[in-house]
Design a binder for these strands. Structure first.
Lengths: 337, 337
DNA sequence: CTGAAAGCGCTTACAG
DNA sequence: CTGAAAGCGCTTACAG
């Protein structure tokens, strides 16, 4: 790698001033731009393999074409990386680059991660959380900030999964297929606390709305806030005590996994004997047999949307992203012949 | 946020030159540094909440305290994020920042991601892969490059999990607990191809070495390169045809999951009736019941090590990171009373 | 249509 | 022990 060519090198080779070279290379729509000069500039730049120095440009412009991503805990959830990918996709499309940092959820680390990003003069900042909680983020001027998958106490613009709609769609998916006696495992009023989740309440409300619309209620609702396989396992055993339950809504895929285990132990087949629908779409959902029908938390799309909003500037206070139903065959169609 | 203070502002307030301020703030061990002047500088800097502008410093120094991370597909595996966390931990400890990019494994995208990083004058570059393959990375001068969890055809320094040792340890874990009739599910000579994996061969060799040392061979080896639950399920059913097999080594956790399914269906309990040990340590491993004993792919540590090597400069050609055994109770101790 | 020059905020020879 | 000045590589008023 020879020494990198500078604007001045290009200008010298083209026999023009750096002013002109800069204008041409940045497509300044000026009267200036004799096609001839432009050609010479482009040829010289190509010949020297000229690449502008972002540090110099950043220093001059105060813009860096860089967006900071501050994650609470990239490590914790299986889909953190999907959010990052979404951010990167959009950043790349729009010729920006992403600086990454991890904050935990301690206010001091958030502040220092923020300082870091501000120091580096990022043109915008995305906070990403793996669980949709309420967080404290300092208000800063001048730089657009978007919170992905969480809400900020200070009212920063945020992007959230549309949980109400997802709850509604999940219930309708069952109702449309003729299910009437449905159980729900993983209700927890304790979770409807902004410090724990800003979206679970909507999920419940969506489920309830669809049921009410059909003139129904859940046959059984199993309480539980620890959404792990054990809850699904124990819950399913309670469900089996009821007669005629044809479908279970599981609070998430791990709970659904427990339901599968209990069903298998009991000699019940999914979906022939019991339909299961759930939320999250973890990898787990596709390991199960049959694979699990579940409402996906759209981490990729949350990331894409957050990056778009930051780059466009002036984001609205709240943006909802749909949670697509991943139909994988764990729900039986009772209306089929 | 008022306008950010500059070095000149600090100098003015301290009544000193920018030279002196710069010296003090960067702890230049000079004769210069009357304690009095230093104090005034520090006080002024603190008062103005001075933070150096990295773009200016980068322009001047050609160093950015930034390391680029180019991942093949951050999205693909569940532990991508652990590698990122490892990188971030070390970067933060050493006051560096991480620029992230995704390349896929297409040579042109690798090249353009690399250009991006070089443009931004990163002080080093880490390539991270989620599966330990052989990849093509252009040789570049001047900037240290480390490959995490892969090998480069051009011989760039790399960091790999110590699969030989892990294979050996896994087998020993069974042997030490009195197992003698052991099956292995997921042998595949086809995978021992650098284009697919540079480490699987070592894993096999480690397993074989431990068995040979004990004067044993696997009772049964199930061939298979698609390491999904189906393979484990089908493989386990073959294993059950053999008499007296007390333990199964699964090629990875997903295969082990299939083994669990087959065992449960057959009415065998893990580990009482069948011990299972495996490789990877996915989230899945801790959902199973009992949780799965498995050799962890140390993504976090791979990330940490790669970052350390890049920052230290002059990395050795190959660095091995141990794969710790996660002992979770899916192996029975036959020697226990 | 084009260029000379200032300036973004630093660091570092150089001179004192 | 300290400061004036150059220069890193750009962009952009300003003047022609």
């Amino acid at each position: 790698m020879a020494k990198r060519a500078t604007l001045a090198d290009v200008a010298r080779l083209a026999g023009l001033s750096t002013t002109t070279v800069s204008m041409v290379l940045n497509n300044r729509p000026n009267s200036r731009l004799s096609e001839d000069a432009a050609e010479r500039v482009r040829a010289a730049a190509a010949k020297l393999n000229y690449r502008p120095n972002p540090a110099a440009r950043g220093l001059r412009l105060g813009k860096t074409r860089t967006v900071g991503f501050i994650s609470d805990e990239v490590t914790i959830t299986r889909y953190a990386s999907a959010m990052i990918r979404g951010l990167l996709e959009v950043a790349e499309e729009r010729d920006h680059t992403v600086l990454i940092s991890e904050s935990g959820r301690r206010a001091d680390r958030i502040a220092s991660a923020l300082d870091l990003m501000l120091d580096r003069q990022t043109d915008g900042i995305v906070f990403g959380l793996m669980g949709a909680k309420l967080i404290e983020v300092p208000v800063i001027a001048d730089v657009p900030v978007v919170i992905a998958n969480a809400k900020s106490a200070a009212g920063h613009p945020c992007v959230l999964p549309d949980e109400h709609r997802a709850g509604y769609d999940a219930a309708r998916h069952l109702l449309d297929r003729g299910h009437r006696r449905i159980a729900f495992i993983g209700r927890s009023e304790a979770l409807v606390d902004p410090a724990l989740s800003v979206t679970i309440g909507s999920r419940y409300a969506g489920l309830d709305a669809a049921m009410a619309e059909a003139g129904l209620e859940f046959v059984l609702q199993i309480d539980g806030r620890h959404w792990e396989p054990d809850l699904g396992y124990a819950g399913a055993r309670e469900v089996f005590e009821q007669t005629g339950v044809t479908a279970v809504v599981a609070a998430n895929d791990r709970v659904a996994f427990g339901v599968y285990q209990a069903a298998q132990e009991r000699g019940l087949r999914v979906p022939d004997d019991l339909s299961v629908i759930s939320f999250d779409d973890e990898y787990l959902a596709s390991y199960l047999r049959p694979q699990l029908t579940t409402m996906q938390i759209p981490y990729l799309e949350l990331g894409r949307m957050a990056m778009q909003l930051v780059l466009d500037g002036d984001p609205p206070p709240e943006t909802l992203v749909p949670m697509p139903l991943q139909d994988r065959g764990s729900v039986r169609d009772l209306t089929a012949p």
